[in-house]
Amino acid sequence: MGQAHNSHVSTPTVQPRDPEKIKKILKVTLYLAVATAIEFVLAFTVPRGYLLTSIFVLLTFYKSFYIVGEFMHLAHEVKLLIWAVVAPILFIIWLILAMLIEGNYVLESLKAIFG
């Protein structure tokens, strides 16, 4: 059905490549690749601890901003759509915090009860 031939619909005209747009996509690619490479190098050079974890989290958010903002084009949508997507996700932050604290409490309790 969907592939029935509509002879009266004209084929859309092909527009030439825009080098500016391609350049921008490649630039974002470079940012993502460099951020991943930095994470990789840090994993073997910096001792494990809160500092390293914080750097990893920051770099991950840096990457996700570019993927969602540029690749998924969200940064160029209307404000309401941006917030409709971002606002529900913000609630997760509390869940992360609550569950990590709770996980630690479970460990402490197990140790206190069973020694």
Partner: peptide, 22 residues
């Protein structure tokens, strides 16, 4: 995708919980 993000958050937060409780 928002609902799918919530599913994945659930799994990754479970990982965090398990890691902190070991």
């Amino acid at each position: 995708l928002i609902s799918d993000a919530l599913s994945f958050s659930g799994l990754l937060i479970t990982y965090g919980f398990s890691r902190f409780s070991h």
